[in-house]
């Protein structure tokens, strides 16, 4: 549905987006991660036809956004960053306007408006002016606008920004449900959202895609993926780490906490193995008073940091 090839945007001499390529099919939800100013919003603005690309192509449903913008825009629902809406209109007026400009007339328009009002819980503010809305309501009003024509493609720039935890949960639910039938791209700063919503994620840094995969694949890039943490009673920390460091599958063992009677140790695996470390630690700890033991699945935030800020991540590791 969405195809992006070698998309590039120059602002002056600055490469805001530098040769990005990806595609999103129907039934996929693509999460777009990256630090502020990495080029996420610029990429979305190019796909939606708001700004023209300097180089490369973007097409939606087979329609090139530069050569055939109207046909492509018809298929897209777009929630821009900061969720803008006409402040002088009521919520109802705004949604009716958006439905009308999407070509919905008469009964179809009424149905579309009442559908999104219900979906986004806007009944209470329907006749209130957009200017007087709280941030959460304004955000949902703009979100409602993006799905009013039941588009095949949804592009959402930080859809959960500024929402409270309940509203976030609600919006994620909507995105996940709609993701079954549509092609969705959304950007976020919240890493847990990637797990909750995405079928695939890309990490963008300085205009380039630096990682691309399903959430578990990305997590496996973490140093923590496959690490084993165990809590042992009645042993000296040095003895425990010495034994664990000898394991062939272990890279290193680090003491997390030591109360004197209880030691918590994490063993990091050497790369490219599949559960070997867990088995090895279980064998090695035979006869110890193990109170707790678990295998880590990897941490997205750590992957994110090590990819987007390689220097700082090393500092922290030291």
């Amino acid at each position: 549905m969405i195809k992006v090839e070698n998309l590039t945007k120059l602002f002056g001499t600055k490469r805001a987006v530098d040769g990005i390529s990806f595609s999103v099919e129907r039934g996929e939800v693509l999460g777009c991660l990256g630090p502020n100013g990495a080029g996420k919003s610029t990429t979305m603005r190019m796909i939606t036809g708001f700004i023209p690309p300097t180089g490369g192509r973007a097409s939606v449903g087979g329609f090139d956004i530069v050569e055939n913008p109207i046909a492509a825009k018809r298929l897209i629902g777009y929630l821009p960053e900061n969720a803008p809406a006409y402040t002088d209109m009521t919520v109802s007026g705004f949604l009716n306007f958006c439905a009308e400009i999407r070509g919905l007339r008469g009964d179809a328009r009424k149905k579309a408006v009442s559908r999104v009002v219900e979906m986004c819980f806007l009944e209470a503010v329907l006749h209130q002016s957009v200017e007087t809305l709280s941030k959460g309501y304004r955000h949902r009003t703009c979100f409602a606008q993006s799905i009013i024509h039941d588009p095949d493609v949804l592009i959402l720039d930080e859809p959960t920004d500024g929402l409270d935890p309940n509203q976030k949960h609600e919006v994620r639910g909507i995105i996940r449900r709609m993701g079954e039938k549509k092609a969705i791209i959304f950007s976020t700063h919240i890493l847990e959202e990637v797990d909750a919503v995405c079928s695939r994620a890309i990490i963008i840094d300085r205009g380039k895609i630096v990682a691309n995969g399903t959430p578990p694949e990305l997590r496996r890039k973490s140093e923590w993926a496959g690490a084993v943490t165990l809590c042992v009673r009645g042993m000296a920390a040095a003895t425990v780490t010495a034994k664990l460091n000898q394991l062939s599958a272990a890279k290193r063992a680090t003491v997390i906490s030591d109360t004197g009677s209880r030691v918590t140790v994490t063993v990091f695996p050497k790369p490219n193995q599949d559960g070997e470390l867990t088995r090895a630690v279980m064998d090695a700890s035979h006869g110890w008073q193990v109170e707790e033991m678990h295998t880590e699945v990897g941490r997205l935030d750590e992957v994110f940091r090590s990819i987007t800020m390689p220097d700082t991540a090393k500092e922290v590791a030291k």
Binding site: F50, P84, I101
Partner: peptide, 11 residues
Amino acid sequence: VGTLELLLTMP
């Protein structure tokens, strides 16, 4: 207000 982005990404 930023509605220009909304208006110009409509069909």
